[in-house]
Write a protein that binds this DNA or RNA. Structure first.
Length: 449
RNA sequence: GUGGCUGUAGCUCAAGUGGUUAGAGCACCAGACUGUGGAUCUGGGUGUUGGGGGUUCGAGUCCCCUCAGCCACCCCA
């Protein structure tokens, strides 16, 4: 009587998250939230699915290809959100009157992209976006960089580099070269400089982007400028001659560099890189990319930029903005590879053995008392042998185990076992469990892992 | 989306040119141990060899399709 089984499986690029992974993920999310809120950002959420015309045509041709699209049951063309920025544009156009500007929001949610998978590249993944809407002031651009910095630092990463550029520098230079109309293709080629080298960039610029060999060389002479940040900017300024747009971009980068350093961001973590452009079409000013120094191959873990007219397709209101997006799943993959995630599968620190089968109510009451005192506690769900229960507690990474059997109940005592130090305390057990709470708290605060 | 590599137990890997009943370590489960975890000992294989089809007397092994993972391109978090 064996019915045909359906093979359990998941779609390409879509994954299950086991507790071990999920605990770490939630920790990352908690940390991100804390940093966002510390700068005054407020959370929002938007639907996973939107009308297709809201989503399509906003990020360029390639993003349209990767957009999940289909007809819903009512025959409407809809799509799953590709990022959180386009939904933000729609959101802002719709609600900015109510919310007022500047609007500082964060948005932690899943997005979907139908592209080929690879390590750190999934079809369903989570982004943590933070943006400031409603101001053109460079202070906002600076703050975004500060948030990126604090975010990664708070996640325990110290070896990273925030790479900065400004689309105005690039656009100004292309204007100077008479290539303004081909900027998208040219910049896409330039963006690959670090990865494929100058020869291939020149090839792509001349063959597919429509630039002359001389123009390609000139663009590279800008993108290849090296040295410390101030030297890079000075040389770029020279190349830009009198171009107003380009010089405005340089000026903005200059201000950012100075402000970031004044705000305490270590010099080596910020690098002006005039070759980064970013593929998304909607950027107009500052662009950010953040690489882990130990794992550059995994790509940028936090990127973004300024977009001064993103909402123009939805409203006549001028809604300039700047923001960035932390790729939570990519970062997690990277941290795993770097061995920076500690594996824990217990979420509560205290384990209460279900020892005396007649005393379940007492165990439950003790657990409730501990929780009321802010200490997470788990009662084992069956009165198994003590050795097995302790083995479970040990494997799951509990910090302390409480053992109370018949003898202890009779004498109102409780054995508190420190599972890491392998020491056992014998304390009195009163209805408020004061001794127990005190001892457990002491153990918990002593040996933070 | 294009091209390539890979796919055996929860994990890491075995199984000469196709040949009986697919093995090992670790992990896991049970017991030794109805009151004390990491140790030891004993017992247990937990698998439709990713899935489907084909060739063959016989397929983990060869062929085709498919699914998934990885790598490069593309793009990007």
């Amino acid at each position: 009587m064996c019915a045909a089984r359906i093979e359990p499986r998941t779609l390409k690029g879509f994954r299950d998250y086991l507790p071990e992974t999920m605990i770490v993920r939630e920790q990352l999310i908690d940390t991100a939230r804390r940093v966002f809120r510390s700068y005054g950002y407020a959370p929002i959420d938007t639907p996973a699915m939107e009308y297709l015309d809201i989503l399509s045509g906003k990020g360029g041709e390639e993003t349209d290809k990767q957009l999940y699209r289909f007809q819903d049951h009512g025959g409407r063309w809809v799509g799953l959100r590709f990022d959180l920025t386009v939904p933000l544009a729609r959101f802002a156009a719709q609600h900015i009157g109510q919310l007022g500007t500047p609007l500082k929001r964060y948005h932690i949610a899943t997005v979907w992209r139908g592209e080929n998978t690879q390590r750190g590249r999934y079809r369903e993944f989570m982004q943590c976006d933070f943006d400031i809407i409603g101001t053109r002031n460079i202070a906002a651009d600076i703050e975004i960089a500060l948030v990126i910095h604090d975010l990664l630092a708070a996640l325990g990463l110290s070896e990273f580099t925030i790479r900065l550029n400004n689309r105005q520098v690039l656009n100004g230079f292309l204007e100077l070269l008479g290539l303004a109309d081909r900027s998208a293709a040219v910049l896409r080629a330039l963006d690959k400089l670090a990865k494929v080298g100058r020869q291939q960039v020149v090839a792509e610029m001349t063959q597919t982007a429509g630039a002359s060999p001389q123009q390609a060389e000139q663009i590279l002479s800008l993108g290849e400028i090296s040295g410390d940040n101030h030297q890079v900017l000075a040389q770029a300024a020279a190349l830009l001659r009198e171009n107003r747009q380009g010089l405005a971009g340089i000026e903005q980068l200059q201000q950012m560099i100075l402000a970031l350093s004044a705000a305490g961001v270590p010099q080596q973590r910020v690098r002006v890189d005039l070759s980064i452009a970013r593929g998304l079409d909607y950027y107009t000013g500052t662009v950010y990319e953040t690489y882990l120094d130990e794992l550059p191959g995994i790509g940028s873990v936090c990127s973004g930029g300024r977009y001064d007219n993103l909402a123009e397709l939805f409203t006549d209101l001028q809604l300039p903005g700047v923001g960035a997006s932390l790729g939570l799943d990519r970062l997690l993959a990277a941290m795993e590879e770097l061995g920076k995630v500690q594996k824990v599968s217990a979420t509560a620190p205290v384990f209460i053995a279900f020892f005396d089968s007649q005393r379940l109510p007492d165990y439950l009451r003790l657990a409730a008392t501990l929780r009321a005192a802010g200490i997470g506690a788990e009662v084992y769900p069956e009165p198994k042998k003590l050795g097995q229960q302790l083995k479970y507690a040990d494997r799951r990474g509990f910090r302390v185990a409480l053992i109370i059997g018949e003898d202890e109940f009779r004498s109102n005592r409780c054995l508190i076992k420190d599972l890491q130090q392998a020491v056992q305390h014998d304390v009195s057990l009163d209805p408020e469990a004061q001794q127990v709470i005190a001892t457990v708290s002491q153990i918990l605060s002593s040996g933070r892992t």
